[in-house]
């Protein structure tokens, strides 16, 4: 590991000041589960490491029936233990549980997961399907960025130098809606995600699809929405024939690189499975 200067701001303002001061030479440390590994491998060699873990008011999960707000320092384990998220945002809970082994969930943060911007970040497809947005703070400015615009490429986001992600906001889910995140690991049961698919389906009383969102992970330079596939379902009744068409359309929208043929096939398999599971959830909820 290369030498670096270690900084420990106590407030968001202080952190933003340091990040502005040191610009590209600074890196934000939260859980460190990605960054420290990268630094050990010398793939990241920051001169300044800004540890934000000592900032007291960034670790929270709040829900006011309009927005779920997650502070930047919230760990996956904290999310996994939230019955509120389980009850109201089960699609996000699926994603949280897909992350790493327990040790990683204990340290890793959801905001770090997004900022690292790995194409395979497990929380991204669900947050895309949920139309989440992120709040950032920089010197004298706050931004609200839709998650769809956040990722710019593999391991690249739209965050500017001196800008700190402080909160993730998720709008509440309408009634008659079911969501699911399904994933396949690269090899073993606890492994990086090879393909991740999140689907969120809203049905009307006749079982016709009012709204659907499909988020794909690990099959393109960034996590993406499969919007053409979504359109195929709009105002349609979800049936097997249509589902396989939707699966194929999602494959067209994906652009996997390694193991491309297999990944493409899996996009279709998982999209169909996730949609079926989401519909099953809505229907069983309607019956209750």
């Amino acid at each position: 590991m290369k030498n670096f200067e270690y900084l420990e701001p106590r407030t968001v303002a202080e952190a933003v000041f340091l990040l502005t001061e040191y610009g590209d030479e600074a890196k934000v440390l939260a859980g460190g589960t990605d960054l420290i590994v990268q630094m050990k491998l010398k793939k990241q060699t920051p001169k300044y490491l800004v540890n934000i873990k000592k900032i007291s008011d960034l670790d929270y999960i709040r829900y006011d029936n309009k927005f779920l707000r997650i502070g930047a320092l919230t760990t996956f384990s904290a999310l996994a233990q939230s019955t509120m998220i389980q009850e109201n945002f089960s699609i996000l809970m699926d994603s949280v549980r897909a992350v790493g082994p327990l040790q990683i969930r204990n340290r890793g943060t959801i905001a770090g997961n997004l900022c690292h911007a790995s194409p395979s970040a497990d929380t991204a497809p669900s947050l895309l399907a949920l139309d989440a947005r992120v709040k950032t703070v920089s010197l004298g400015e706050e931004r609200m960025i839709p998650i769809k615009e956040f990722f710019k490429g593999p391991f690249a986001t739209c965050l500017k130098a001196g800008e700190l992600l402080t909160e993730i906001l998720v709008p509440s889910i309408p009634s008659n809606t079911g969501g699911t995140y399904l994933w396949l690991p690269k090899k073993t049961a606890v492994d990086e995600t090879l393909v991740g698919v999140a689907t969120l389906v809203t049905l009307d009383v006749n079982g016709v699809c009012d709204d659907v969102k499909i988020g794909l992970g690990s099959v393109a330079p960034t996590p993406i929405r499969a919007e053409k596939a979504e359109k195929l379902l709009h105002k349609k009744k979800i049936e097997d024939g249509l589902l396989s068409e939707v699966g194929e359309m999602a494959v067209d929208e994906a652009a996997p690189r390694s193991r491309a043929e297999y990944r493409a096939k899996m996009v279709s398999v998982l999209v169909v499975r996730a949609l079926k599971e989401s519909v099953r959830k809505v229907v069983s909820h309607m019956r209750n």
Partner: peptide, 11 residues
């Protein structure tokens, strides 16, 4: 170990 994978307890 992130790329050469040995079975985990779940496997």
């Amino acid at each position: 170990f992130s790329e050469y994978k040995i079975p985990t307890a779940l496997d």
